[in-house]
Design a protein around this nucleic acid. Structure first.
Length: 747
DNA sequence: CGCCTATCCTTTTTT
DNA sequence: AGGATAGGCG
């Protein structure tokens, strides 16, 4: 611990200033690559080593599990391990993990049963679908996702349904469903992600004793990625913070963030909190603008892209590094060509001695990873895909977890419906319907099952019996044994093990491996709990494990692969850095994503494109030495072929920073079109004999008149266009090879 | 009544 | 491409 003051000399003056601020509220505006995590970890170390602050009086919150882990690792290098990892150490975790820990300790005061379970987004959506079905509301009338977004967006602002005042019939209907949703959650003893935070907020607001207790416990509260804070989280921070007005005891806030890297507004984040916070808490502002990560050209490109955003506090990153390599730009004919280029470039880089783990392929959406995986595999380059289907979200893992839930909570309808016929045991929709219908209020389904007649009655009774037996058998088993037991006795293992058809042979093996990995995760969890001083067996431990699984949805599988190229979304890459970055799929409609674009049929808030731009900025600033930008003129996606123009973001980089590795997208112009996709690529035209059909294009049909192409799917003679015509006609799907249709304009 | 197959429909990012 | 659902067969 004595090394801290010495360590401080390795910080630059701005970083040192931030780290050693006296007891006051601080806002650190930290540009990309400016040593944000260093400042945070050193601040914690400085508080403990130099200011004599008790580690227990420090709370540090992050947004992702990955960031929490990173901070924990880096803190352990500065402090004695016990100060970080044990229950006497610094509190460190995601907002949700911290909230969960608090709720576990105060479940009763928060109005929750001790074994409350956490709904992940999948579970939440499933519950909402069940709800809509029960109310006989057609999914066309209220889309489950819409209702989910409605509920979450209000809860993320800290709103409750009883205080919500709907405007108009539509909102009234949604609010009614919201109310029903809350009732259902209460009945099942489950809470969603927002609810975790909301309960803690209300706990602190309404319970003065508890508020006082935690306010005096935490002297310092550090927040990472502060720009991602939503109003609910901000209010939570305020409850724990020292209020400059009242002077009541509370924590000093040390918030680190970058408004240019705010990429979670879809989750309710409000980058304006940076300004709010500074004003409301009279926080000292410290700017970190010196970038230690990227070569000059990369930084210049990033600065120039982000300068196109209007809504920002504004800062300019600088570096003392040289310009470095130019930014390479490559246009491929299609996604396989793009992937081939990337994979062969990576192969060359590895030859040159760049470690594979220092190379990353970043994309906007997970769906883009396939082609790259394919080509990397073909060249024998080791790779690891992050994100995508997370471990705890795999169907087979969910099934196993649902069995566990059913053992503990017979009333858990979601779990029941998930596994009642998995593996198939002759219980179909009719039987399930009868089962639910025959149920008296307050009666358990297991007792209903006992008196259910009809064809499915026997099967249901057997199932109920099976669950009851497993419940007794697992009552005192250690966690991993209990998991293994349930996987075996439920028949899940057998159903994946037997190989009648060869079609899914590999898939079944994978599923079996995942089930084994779940047992391993149980072992890990027991060890982790032991470190926190918790040692339980049987159902209590299962309950904790289930909560953990919902909260930490991914990354539990596999050991960190140290010699592999990394593939991930730009979102997942935030906070990371790599020697070489391939930013791929840079096409209008993909990146920026089409959902953020204005179109003839959709109006989008102007903020949406700015958020896409910030995302691009995050992607670009991940690169230390070398940056590649690639896109494909045509791309097989969602079962059809789509043609995209290159992303506007490429154009926002000054020409002199770029080096083209492929012919420029147009012969004549220097400009390629903004906004709407265009026939940029010669290769794209070849796929259609006469015209290049693309979404957004206006057309005239001999019978239906004028219309606009909504989408194009299929290939060759099967190429099919969905065209929206004026009202009486509406949308039509037409085979472009046959339809009497001519293009009108390029939009 | 349950199971299998054909067709339709959606498709961002994360706790 | 993949999941969800509707319709037909055993």
């Amino acid at each position: 611990m004595g090394q801290i003051p010495e360590e401080l000399h390795t910080l630059d003056p701005a970083q040192q200033n931030a780290v050693t601020r006296p007891a006051e509220h601080v806002l650190v505006l930290a540009g990309a690559g400016s040593g944000k995590t260093r400042v945070l970890t050193h601040r914690v170390a400085w508080l403990i080593a130099c200011e004599g602050v008790d580690p227990e009086a420090i709370l540090a919150v992050t947004f992702t599990n990955k960031a929490a882990r990173e901070m924990r690792d880096r803190l352990s290098l500065l402090l004695a391990p016990a100060a970080v990892n044990s229950r006497w150490g610094v509190w460190l975790g995601t907002f949700h993990a911290v909230a969960h820990r608090l709720l576990r300790q105060h479940a009763a005061e928060a109005g929750l049963i001790p074994s409350f379970q956490i709904l992940d987004s999948q579970d939440q959506l499933a519950l909402i679908k069940r709800l809509l079905r029960r109310y006989n509301i057609d999914e066309g009338e209220v889309a489950p996702r819409e209702l989910m977004a409605f509920i979450n967006s209000h809860k993320d602002k800290g709103e409750r349904v009883d205080r919500f005042e709907p405007i108009g019939a539509r909102q009234a209907q949604l609010a009614e469903l919201w109310r029903a949703y809350e009732a259902q959650c209460a009945q099942e003893g489950v809470v969603d992600f927002s609810e975790l935070l909301l309960r803690v907020l209300e706990l602190l607001e309404t319970n003065p004793d508890l508020r006082l207790r935690y306010r005096s416990r935490f002297a310092h509260l550090l927040v990472d990625e502060f720009q991602d804070t939503n109003p609910l989280q901000y209010r939570l921070l305020k409850q724990l913070a020292l209020d400059p007005e009242s002077g009541e005891s509370g924590a000093w806030l040390f918030c680190v963030g970058d408004d240019d890297q705010s990429i979670y507004s879809f989750r309710g984040a409000l980058p304006a909190v940076l300004a709010y916070f500074q004003r409301e808490f009279r926080a000292t502002l410290v700017r970190l603008e010196r970038n230690y990560r990227s070569a000059g050209n990369i930084l210049a490109a990033a600065n120039s892209i982000i300068a196109h955003n209007r809504d920002r506090i504004g800062k300019a990153l600088w570096t003392e590094r040289g310009e470095g390599e130019p930014i390479r730009v490559f246009m491929a004919d299609d996604e396989m060509g793009e992937a081939r280029f990337v994979a062969s470039s990576i192969s060359a880089l590895i030859e040159e001695g760049i470690p594979a783990k220092e190379i990353a392929i970043l994309y906007r959406t997970n769906a883009l990873s396939r082609a790259f995986e394919h080509q990397l595999l073909a060249l024998g380059i080791p790779y690891r895909v992050y994100g995508g289907l997370r471990f705890f979200e795999r169907a087979e893992v969910k099934h196993a977890l649902a069995y566990l839930r059913l053992l503990l909570f017979p009333e858990d309808e979601g779990a029941l419906l998930r596994v009642i016929n998995v593996p198939a045991r002759g219980i179909g929709s009719k039987t399930i319907e009868a089962l639910l219908k025959a149920r008296e209020p307050g009666e358990s389904w297991e007792s209903v099952a006992m008196r259910l007649g009809g064809r499915g009655g026997v099967a249901v009774r057997q199932f109920a019996e099976q669950i009851r037996t497993m419940r007794a058998e697992t009552a005192s088993l250690p966690l991993p044994d209990a998991i293994a037991w349930v996987i075996e006795k439920s028949g899940l293992a057998a159903s994946y093990a037997q190989g009648e058809e060869e079609g899914g042979q590999k898939e079944r093996e994978e599923r079996l491996e995942n089930l084994e990995a779940l047992v391993a995760a149980g072992h890990d969890f027991v060890a982790e709990m032991a470190r926190e001083g918790i040692s339980l067996a049987g159902h209590e431990m299962i309950s904790l494990f289930l909560q953990h699984a919902a909260l930490e949805s991914g990354e539990h599988q596999g050991i960190e692969e140290h010699r592999a190229v990394r593939l991930m979304t730009v979102h997942a890459a935030k906070g990371l850095e790599f020697d070489t970055v391939f930013l791929v799929g840079l096409e209008e409609g993909l990146f920026p994503h089409e959902n953020a674009l204005e179109s003839a049929f959709r109006t989008v808030t102007p903020d949406a494109i700015e958020e896409e731009r910030r995302l691009m900025y995050v992607g670009v600033t991940r690169a230390k030495r070398q940056l590649f930008l690639t896109w494909a003129a045509s791309r097989r996606l969602h079962g059809g072929v789509r043609y995209h123009a290159p992303s506007r973001f490429i154009q926002e980089i000054p020409e002199e920073l770029l080096r083209w590795l492929s012919p420029r997208p147009t012969q004549r112009g220097k400009e390629f079109s903004r906004g709407a996709p265009m026939a940029a690529a010669e290769g794209a035209i070849a796929s259609s004999p006469l015209y290049l059909w693309r979404p957004g294009m206006r057309v005239r049909h001999s019978k239906f008149g004028e219309g606009v192409i909504v989408r194009v799917a299929g290939a060759g003679a099967q190429t099919e266009a969905t065209v929206r015509f004026a009202p009486p006609v509406g949308e039509k799907r037409l085979l472009v090879a046959l339809a009497k249709m001519t293009p009108l304009s390029d939009g």
